[in-house]
Design a protein around this nucleic acid. Structure first.
Length: 567
RNA sequence: CGGGGCGUGGCUCAGCCUGGUAGAGCGCCUGGUUCGGGACCAGGAGGCCGGAGGUUCGAAUCCUCUCGCCCCGACCA
């Protein structure tokens, strides 16, 4: 295609409201424009990239026998009420009413709709298993859209759903997806990790997230490379660093002491001269009922683990008035000793510790010499959020924690939707059974965004060839030179004939402008037609690394072709 | 939902504190010269200063309200 005829609105300067690299560069490079908070126009270049990503996804999904459908984004409230998620989704769901005042929503995902199709049509075990998928726009009213296309309110998702007769069938479907996802992300040129994830409100058993390491991400991943351990931080299990100082020896009795104005762990540590690891952190959390959570002073509570333990979707911190009500003391002076009115759950890191410090449930007082299991009783569980510096639970290998972007997620759903929505089929014996389901998502724009995050330099984007909007740009240095112009046009035609997506920069611009723009939009290869043309040579520039080789005009197209196919 | 910041030609921003006829650079249009890393000269177009109300002889500037956007946190299949 000829650049002079295209709409590629590149910007000389960074847009004022873009922070992360992918956002900044995709706006500057003329890929996207913002329409509203978390709502973007995908212009020509972005759409071409997205089309390539979608094509890869579609090929790999089709290859595992998945069948593509297209479901409505506009959903009646009823199906969401049946699964119970009309209420669960809360403010994150876009809701609207039609002219008759009937309630509708914009789909955030499509378990309900897919299940509604299945229950109407699937009757017999002979029809199972099924893998259904779609590539469709999802809507989520995010509380805080951010970082360009990373977190938006409208986005394209590939979502698939599997229906199987039994757990073994689901395992197979899950495995097919796992492998397909690896092929998809490999082909897109990404570096990623498949990590163990919690299944959240989806109500599933097993789940993996596909994560790309990036500071632009919002999730944290813990890995122990040698041990092969990779997990979302929310779920990661590990051994903490040992306490900073040994517990006082002896079978000591709890003893109250005055701590005027000392409320936080840090303040009490400074006051007592003992490290944070010598304290018991007491947090009042509310799930269905209030619970007192105990952690080592320097540890953080994993709300995900607590919610899982309590069997609820989410937990919240108790309000100050509630704490006052239940403990007759403020949040800075709480402790487990003498607590009878609620469940007390202690993190495993407190097991075996003795003579620690905690709040006295009396404002401005703490207790020393408190020994878990002796001075108070508690259930011990893993409540703690893993942290950098922890070691792998079995091998002792240090854990590394880093930020990551989630680009895919696969779930074993179980029976949640098939059960609640009444999907039943007859088995070989003529008995009704409930099929078991899985659900599997890929964020299409996130693949593009994260590729830009992963691959860019000071001059712009450096996309992998598989998802770049064009394979190659042909740049005549001086378009007024008829020989250069004609040679460039011929090279363009040759590239097209070889099946390459080629872009001819036939704009009447100075060379600097053309080079800068080519670097910015990030196509993998450039053929520069310039002064060496008189010797029958052109330059073949690889965007990644900015390396350049001279090539005979007659061979340049074929060389690019080989490099694109080989990459 | 808490905290912070910003809305002025297409873009990046100055002007606001201390009210007095709206600016710069880039981009855009015309003509000319140029042509290997965001050229130069000459001429030109383009802005109810996010919106509403108020104060004032007079408001981009001061006050009130409102809308929008960005960032941090909370939140988040």
């Amino acid at each position: 295609m000829r650049w002079s005829k295209l709409f590629i609105p590149t910007l000389r300067e960074d847009p004022a409201d873009a922070e992360v690299a992918s956002h900044r560069l995709m706006v500057r490079g003329g890929y996207i424009r913002q329409l509203g908070a978390g709502i973007y126009n995908y212009l020509f270049l972005a759409q071409r990239s997205i089309n390539k990503i979608v094509a890869i996804v579609r090929q790999e999904m089709d290859a595992i026998g998945a069948q593509e459908m297209l479901l409505p984004a506009l959903n009646p409230a009823e199906v969401w009420r049946e699964s119970g998620r009309w209420d669960v989704m809360g403010a994150n769901m876009f809701r609207l009413k039609d002219r008759w005042d009937r309630e509708l929503c914009l789909g955030m995902t499509h378990e309900e709709v897919m299940t509604s199709i299945a229950r109407g049509e699937l009757r017999s075990y002979k029809q199972l298993p099924q893998i259904w998928y779609q590539i469709q726009t999802k809507f989520r009213d995010e509380p805080r859209p951010k970082s360009g296309l990373m977190r938006v309110r409208q986005f394209i998702m590939k979502d698939s759903y599997t229906f199987d007769m039994d757990a073994a069938g689901l395992d197979a479907a899950y495995d097919l997806h796992y492998k397909a996802y690896c092929r998809i992300f490999d082909r897109c040129g990404l570096e990623y990790a498949a990590v163990e994830a919690h299944s959240g409100s989806m109500g599933g058993s097993q789940s993996h997230e596909f994560m790309v390491r990036s500071d632009a991400g919002e999730d944290f991943v813990a890995v122990a490379p040698k041990s092969g351990y990779q997990a979302n931080l929310e779920k990661a299990e590990s051994n903490p660093v040992p306490p900073a100082s040994a517990d006082p020896a002896g079978d000591l009795e709890p003893e109250e002491f005055h701590t005027p104005g000392r409320k936080t762990i840090a303040e009490v540590a400074a006051f007592t001269g003992l490290p944070e690891t010598s304290q018991i952190k007491s947090l009042v959390m509310v799930g269905a009922k209030p619970v007192l959570c105990l952690l080592r002073g320097d540890h953080q509570l994993s709300e995900t683990k607590l919610a899982g333990l309590l069997g609820v979707n989410e937990v919240r911190a108790a309000h100050p008035e509630e704490i006052r009500d239940w403990f007759a003391a403020g949040a800075g002076s709480l402790g487990p000793v003498g607590v009878k009115n609620m469940r007390v759950i202690a993190d495993n890191a407190l097991r075996g510790r003795i003579n620690m410090i905690c709040g006295a449930n009396k404002d401005d007082y703490h207790l020393r010499n408190v020994t878990p299991g002796e001075d108070f009783q508690a259930e011990f569980h893993d409540l703690r959020q893993a942290a950098s510096g922890d070691t792998h639970a079995e091998t002792g290998e240090p854990l590394e924690v880093f930020k990551a972007v989630e680009i895919g997620h696969i779930f074993k759903l179980g029976y949640k939707y098939s059960e609640s929505m009444g999907l039943r089929v007859l088995n070989e014996d003529g008995k009704e059974i409930t099929p078991i389901m899985g659900s599997y998502g890929i964020g299409i724009e996130r693949i593009l965004s994260v590729a830009v995050e992963l691959y860019h330099d000071k001059d712009g984007i450096v996309l992998p060839a598989a998802i770049a909007p064009f394979d190659v740009v042909i740049t005549p240095v001086n378009n007024a030179d008829a020989a250069q112009r004609d040679a460039a046009a011929k090279l363009h035609d040759e590239c097209l004939a070889l099946g390459l997506d080629a872009l001819l920069d036939d704009r009447d611009e100075r060379p600097g402008v053309k080079f800068k723009d080519a670097d910015l939009i990030g196509l993998p290869y450039r053929i520069t037609v310039g002064k060496k043309l008189v010797d029958g040579k052109v330059e073949l520039v690889t965007r990644r690394g900015k390396t350049s080789v001279d090539a005979p005009v007659a061979e340049a197209a074929a060389m690019v072709h080989r490099m694109v196919r080989g990459s």
